[in-house]
Design a binder for these strands. Structure first.
Lengths: 236, 236
DNA sequence: CACCAGAATTGATGTGGGTCAATGCCGGCC
DNA sequence: GGCCGGCATTGACCCACATCAATTCTGGTG
């Protein structure tokens, strides 16, 4: 779905109106330089379930997610899957100073990303050091998140994992107590992110609902009813 | 043990003779600029078991490990611990664009690190963009390692975890089949890195020894006797 | 609106690794 | 060289979560 007539090969990316920009790599640039990244960006739309990158493929392109949600994951030969993160607008995908992608990425919801040639990005980074600075800051945050996830996977119970996951999502999305929070990913995605099975995730949801920590208006939204109690349940 | 008479406040750090330099942040600089980082470095020696940084403390200093081994870890209030990585010479510690350290670091063996004030490093990075570039590359590698570790913690069996751990160590250290590899950390550290208990780690070692995949000449060394079989045991 | 296929929930049972406990081993110290 | 204390190993038992197996729910379609 790359390079559609409507938004490519002529029409450039509309960076000025991009909601993800303040959070994203491009947000590092001063207002006057808005078009610097836009001039090397190729917009790409993805339907839900479509793959953006494939682990092991040559990493020639990198991306900034502008809309939707992606999951990043690693697979084992026998099909076991670990989702290493869910990406939201502003997140950068493809960071890896090796030859190849070290994970796959797939759209959870219909998504839009800005594609850059890695080489073009490197050129721009040499010219605008604030880009590299921002990328380092994005990478640091991801690393901190990865370390928190290692603690979760290595040491937390199923209940603690689910509670931590919901709190983490809520804080990233800026959703407060009592607000409905979209939960676009499937139970199977949640399980593969938390290192559990679908059944265990489902049971943990049910228990928390019965304890009135959360409500589940439908399968793709949650309401955190008791934030403090959920924090306790998260274990830290 | 900061700022000892012998190597501080007068005698500067000997960067030219530093074995870790090619791998480390400072290795990004051209030979002519060897002293750039040395001029802002404070050497710090740590006995085994001593803490370098403490999760939650203000992150005013950052470090390059030049000798020895550190473990990075996160603790839960009830004492559960997850070791997120073992650092070897050349590794950078303290990366985190927040106010505070997001993990603690403790010496596994007697170690030496170069301490930098974060602010001084930021100044040098503004002046020498190749420093920031190198730091980004170090961060990317760490992120890739973190993602591999998430797969390990979320989806691998005890046996697969131990096999992966030994292979990872061997490749980082450049140790081949049949060579004795130092294993400076305790069984308890290995367990906390792999999300297991001491007992399970011990049993997995015993099984692999009986299967002749490895030998254990003493508690702090391993020999990989059958690299291919160990790869199979690692699951990917 | 009824049907249907895939997703989620719920229940029954199994098991890998945790827990608790005893024993073995090694290295530092007198 | 013998003693001692902490780490590692081994064994017996248990439990949280996985696995296997029905239902139940839901949203998309003719």
């Amino acid at each position: 779905m790359d390079c559609q007539p409507a938004n490519c090969c002529g029409a450039r990316v509309d960076c000025a109106g991009c909601e993800a920009r303040p959070l994203a790599l491009c947000g590092a640039l001063k207002a006057a330089d808005v078009q610097v990244m836009g001039s090397i960006a190729y917009p790409r739309k993805l339907d839900a379930g479509k793959q953006l990158i494939h682990e092991g493929d040559p990493a020639d392109d990198v991306f900034t997610l502008t809309d939707g949600m992606l999951k990043l994951y690693k697979l084992m030969p026998d099909g076991r899957r670990q989702i290493t993160g869910f990406m939201i607008p502003g997140d950068f995908i493809g960071l890896a100073y090796g030859q190849s992608y070290v994970y796959s990425a797939e759209a959870v919801t219909p998504s839009t990303a800005c594609r850059f040639r890695r080489s073009a990005l490197l050129d721009k980074m040499a010219e605008y050091p604030e880009l590299e600075h921002r990328l380092l800051s994005l990478a640091s945050n991801e690393l901190a998140a990865a370390q928190a996830q290692m603690l979760l996977l290595g040491r937390k119970s199923a209940r603690e994992r689910l509670a931590s996951f919901l709190l983490g999502l809520a804080s990233r999305r800026g959703v407060g107590e009592g607000d409905a929070m979209p939960l676009p990913m499937s139970r199977s995605d949640i399980a593969d992110f938390l290192g559990l099975t679908i059944e265990t995730v489902s049971r943990a949801f049910t228990v928390m609902r019965k304890e009135r920590l959360i409500s589940l208006p439908d399968k793709h939204s949650v309401i955190i009813d008791d934030h403090d109690a959920l924090r306790d349940a998260a274990g830290d």
